[in-house]
Every structure is written in structure tokens, then in C-alpha cells.
Design a protein around this nucleic acid. Structure first.
Length: 509
RNA sequence: CGGGGUGUAGCUCAGCCUGGUAGAGCAUUAGCUUUGGGAGCUAAGGGUCGCGAGUUCGAAUCCCGCCGCCCCGACCA
């Protein structure tokens, strides 16, 4: 008997929906395609923000904020950029409502002279500011970041993974030359890789996107890719070297130390609330979420086994003192987050709520524990032994000594489990495209298929499109070319030509 | 935006074929009992059956239109 009604094996998409709801992370909103992020889900985002913001600032960036609405003309400034985003833009056209035949409608007489778009990303409006802020080589590098909401009118939405509005951070930097800008692009990518692995316990493969998967307007795009429990790949973060494309389109020039005017090289990079979807699909099990302790809004939850009897008073005091002592500890560089769930509800119900939400350690303290100075707890990432829930009892003193280690080991175990899944499910024994077709061509119900690691001749243009079509027939996409490349290459799996690069192929979200 | 499915109480769903005025389980509220682990009994509250128009004496049920959600596809963080 699991805490969720649907298991991963039965129906992965249904399980995903169930866990988002049952773990109290988010719910659908009345606004089409948008979600309401609830406190437990938003708490996870706040942890992500806190740690990533620290790392972004440590790299020398400062935060700022740009408007959500961008003049329509701005988006038209970079040709490829327009092509990439035009189809999913929300447009503000009026500034006033008027009752027409009893219903409120935009007032035809209040149409904006120039429509505004809701930002699908901010390169254009930020580039405009950069062109005014950057005068001299002394102004470079300019390294800025904003935490913002983004609107992209998606045809098909899924909670956290793809919603019409989502939250993210977008870093934008300008540099004197290509070398510096590329270095910054790679720094951001490595920041995301280490953040995902260390903080979210999300093992990823960092690499460069093929030409046809680049960000609209970028010279090169890099990503981190994570493997979900259904074998699909999730792009969990991106970093772009934009070359001088946006600088040309928006006149971002500086006077170099010889007096000449030179185009700046820009970058942009971002991660979004999609990361939470990645955490769910990586660490969730059939009992709900297993939140990595580093991002769990509450790391140790104490459920007092209150029974409406006089000893409840002592029990409550015991639990409060335990939480207080735990809160004085430091874990993952911050005060330990302990919480007593004093809600007037049945203890068993409270226990299962926290199991579904994925609190890393759930203490269940009864009068006997209090009297004997013990702590009985369950470790969420190793909840069951067989079918049964496994609980542990430590002395209070031991528990206080062990608490930090328990959280750290939970974090490590979640990472190792996911890391093993990633490493064990990348096949590199495809000698030909026919091999790939044999493996990915036939789908049995519920069959798990991981990723493929193959070599290719890195075709471009029409030849690359042809490769994309052949992969599409198998529902596959090229995820990226990992940064770590082998020293020698097998022949191209698509053309038989000499291989020049190793790439990852997978089904993707 | 194309194909398929679906929409009835907070959740999961029955009722629809064969039209007759709203149901179950869980959840909620109250009371009693129970108490080392998703309790039991009793009672109560909660739904203009997605929205709109039609057929009909009468529509959750039949017809038409629209919308949301889910899955697949195209597109994408």
C-alpha cells in the first residue's frame, strides 16, 4: 500500500500529476496553462534561489530588474530571435476595459500605439540598456542577473515542466572579446552543473547543443541534461554565447584602449522552476516526493503523538526542545530547518502528509520516547524495508549528534541513486543507425529506455535537418555533445563518414 | 494547433445506452469511543452534473456549439 494511488510503473505521467498534487507542491490555476505554486513547492524554489543567488554573486554578478512588458519593436531587432519566439508571445494591446453589451471588453478607443509583449526572455530590452551603459572597455565585463517571471504561450503545458508563465533567473553579461564571453558561458554552465549535482542531487551531463537546438540568436548553446526515472532527458539549464549578434542588432559598442569602437560579446544563461519538475521526476517514489535535504523547506519534521491526555503537555515540551536544539545545528552551510507539526490532526495523517511531501527525516515522538529521552524517526529516502515502513529509534543525545550526518547521507544517497541510474542507462553499443532503430523503434508498454551515446560527423544545415528527421521518427532528439569527449571516434552513425564528436541521443521532455 | 480521451461534492468515481428532478467511498464538521502509529460508530454540511443554446411536460442523461483538463503529435526552459 503506497501513499500515492498511481505508481511510476503503472503510468508515469499520471504519477507525476499525482505527486505534484499530493506532495502539495502546486495546483492548476484558473488561468489557462498557469499554475499556483503552493508553499511547499515555493519553499523549494526559495532554497534554489538562495543558493544559486549566492553562487551568481560570488561570480561577480549583481542583481537588477527589468520590466515584464517589452515594446513590440524591441523583439524585432534580432532576426533569428523573432523567428524563435514570435509564435508563443502574449501581447498587450489595450490599456482600458469597457462594458460592451454587458460584458467587459478591451476598449477599442484605448488601443496602445505600440503593443507590448510579455517577456519570453529579456535579451532585447536588456541589450538596449547595455548599449547605453557600455561606453568604454573600462565598463567591461558587465555581469548582471535578474530573477523574474517569463511568459511563453505554450500549446501544451505540464506543471513545472512547461507552463505559460514560469519563474527563472536570467544572467546577461557583456565582454570585450570572444575569449572572455565564452569563458563566462562555460563558467555559468559549470555553475549549473555543480549546483544541480551538489544541491539538487541531480546528476547531469553538461555539453553543447547541436546547431539546430540553439537558442534563437545564439552562436553556441550549452545545456545540462538530467535523466528522469522514465528514461527521458530533461534540459535543466542553459548557457548561451551570443557572439556579437545582439550587440550588432542593438549597437552594444565600447571604445577600446586605442580609441576604436568595438562590438561587445554577450552571453545569457538561465534556470527555471522546471528544476523542481526535474527533482520530482528524479527523486520521487511511489510514496511521494523525496526532497533532497539541501532544498527541503523543512528538513526534520517532528510529529508529536498527541493523545488528548495530560502527558501531552510534557510531550509537546519535549518536541519543542528537540526542535530548538536541532535548529541550533548547521547543515549545508545554513541553520538546520526543524519543525514541530502541532496541527490538531491525527498523528498518522500528519506522518503520511510529510511522507508525501518528502521531508527528509520525520520524527514520531510518543510519551514513551519523551520519558525515555529517545527519538523515533523514519528516513524518507529509505522509507520501507520490503513493504513495511522502517522506523529507527535513537537516544535523544545520539540523534542530535547524528542529525546532520543523517541529512548529509540522505543527500548523498539520493545523488548516488540517481547517478547510478544515469550511468547505467546510457548505452554506447550502437554500431549503426539500424541498431538504434531496432532498439528505439519498437516500444513495449511501460518499457524503460535510457539514452544513447553515439559518434557522428557533426553535419550542418540540410544534412543536420535530415538527421533530425530520422531521429524524430524514433521520437529521439540530440541532447548535447558532452564536454568530456573521447580521444578517438567511431564512424558517424548517420553517414558512415569519419566521426568527429560524441553526442547524447534521448527522448526528451 | 491536429488526432484520441475526458469533464458529476475537496479527491477518486458510479449514474448517461433505455430522459422522471443527485449518489458512493475517501476527505470536511460535530459528538462519543479508541490511542506506539494511514482508527470505529453516529450524525451533519457540501453539487445551478464544465459553459451556452436547443429538443421535451420534464435533460447529468438526447442534439448542436464552445471551453478546460489528460494522452499522442507539432513547438518549446
Amino acid at each position: 500500500m503506497h501513499a500515492l494511488k498511481v505508481t511510476r510503473a503503472e503510468d508515469f505521467p499520471e504519477w507525476y500529476q499525482a505527486i505534484v498534487r499530493e506532495a502539495d507542491l502546486a495546483e492548476l490555476s484558473p488561468t489557462r496553462g498557469c499554475m499556483i505554486i503552493k508553499p511547499w513547492g515555493y519553499g523549494i524554489w526559495e532554497r534554489i534561489q538562495g543558493e544559486l543567488d549566492r553562487r551568481i554573486k560570488a561570480a561577480g554578478c549583481e542583481n537588477y530588474y527589468f520590466p515584464m512588458m517589452i515594446p513590440l519593436s524591441f523583439i524585432a531587432k534580432e532576426a533569428e530571435h523573432v523567428d524563435g519566439f514570435a509564435k508563443e508571445m502574449a501581447v498587450v494591446t489595450h490599456h482600458r476595459l469597457k462594458a460592451v453589451d454587458g460584458t467587459l471588453r478591451p476598449d477599442p478607443e484605448a488601443e496602445l500605439a505600440e503593443p507590448l509583449i510579455l517577456r519570453p526572455t529579456s535579451e532585447t530590452i536588456i541589450g538596449d540598456a547595455f548599449s547605453r551603459w557600455i561606453k568604454s572597455y573600462r565598463d567591461l565585463p558587465l555581469m548582471l542577473n535578474q530573477w523574474a517571471n517569463i511568459v511563453r504561450w505554450e500549446m501544451r503545458t505540464r506543471m513545472f515542466l512547461r507552463t505559460a508563465e514560469f519563474l527563472w533567473q536570467e544572467g546577461h553579461t557583456a565582454h570585450a572579446n570572444q575569449t572572455d564571453a565564452v569563458a563566462e558561458t562555460m563558467r555559468a554552465l559549470e555553475m549549473y552543473r555543480s549546483f544541480a549535482e551538489e544541491f539538487l542531487a541531480l546528476p547531469v551531463v553538461a555539453g553543447e547543443k547541436p546547431e539546430n537546438e540553439r537558442f534563437p540568436g545564439a552562436v553556441s548553446t550549452f545545456s545540462i541534461e538530467a535523466m528522469m526515472q522514465d528514461g527521458k532527458a530533461l534540459q535543466a539549464g542553459t548557457s548561451h554565447y551570443l557572439g556579437t549578434h545582439f550587440a550588432e542588432a542593438q549597437n552594444i559598442r565600447y571604445q577600446d584602449n586605442e580609441g576604436g569602437m568595438t562590438l561587445a560579446h554577450t552571453t545569457s544563461w538561465g534556470v527555471s522552476t522546471r528544476l523542481i519538475g526535474g527533482v520530482i521526476m528524479t527523486h520521487g517514489d511511489d510514496d511521494g516526493l523525496r526532497a533532497p535535504p539541501a532544498i527541503a523547506p523543512r528538513q526534520i519534521v517532528i510529529v508529536p503523538m498527541l493523545r488528548g491526555k495530560p502527558e501531552d503537555v510534557e510531550l509537546s515540551a519535549y518536541c519543542a526542545a528537540l526542535a530548538s536544539d536541532l535548529s541550533a545545528l548547521t547543515v549545508f552551510g545554513a541553520p538546520l530547518r526543524a519543525f514541530v507539526d502541532a496541527k490538531d490532526a491525527r498523528p498518522a495523517d500528519k506522518r503520511w502528509d510529510w511522507v508525501r511531501r518528502g521531508a527528509p527525516i520525520i520524527c514520531e515522538i510518543g510519551p514513551r520516547d519523551a520519558a525515555g529521552a529517545n527519538v523515533t524517526f523514519i528516513k524518507r529516502n529509505a522509507l520501507r524495508e520490503g513493504e513495511k515502513v522502517k522506523s529507527h529509534t535513537f537516544s535523544r543525545a545520539d540523534f542530535l549528534v547524528q542529525a546532520v550526518a543523517l541529512l548529509e547521507s540522505t543527500q548523498a544517497e539520493l545523488f548516488n541513486e540517481a547517478k547510478a541510474r544515469l550511468e547505467n542507462n546510457i548505452r554506447d553499443d550502437f554500431a549503426s543507425f539500424a541498431d538504434l532503430e531496432r532498439y528505439f523503434g519498437e516500444d513495449k508498454e511501460g518499457e524503460f529506455k535510457g539514452w544513447a551515446r553515439v559518434h557522428w560527423s557533426r553535419p550542418t544545415g540540410a544534412a543536420l535537418d535530415a538527421v533530425g528527421e530520422r531521429l524524430k521518427a524514433l521520437k529521439l532528439t540530440i541532447r548535447n555533445a558532452p564536454l568530456t569527449q573521447p580521444s578517438a571516434f567511431r564512424p558517424c552513425i548517420f553517414s558512415g563518414k569519419p566521426g568527429v564528436e560524441e553526442i547524447l541521443i534521448a527522448r526528451a521532455y
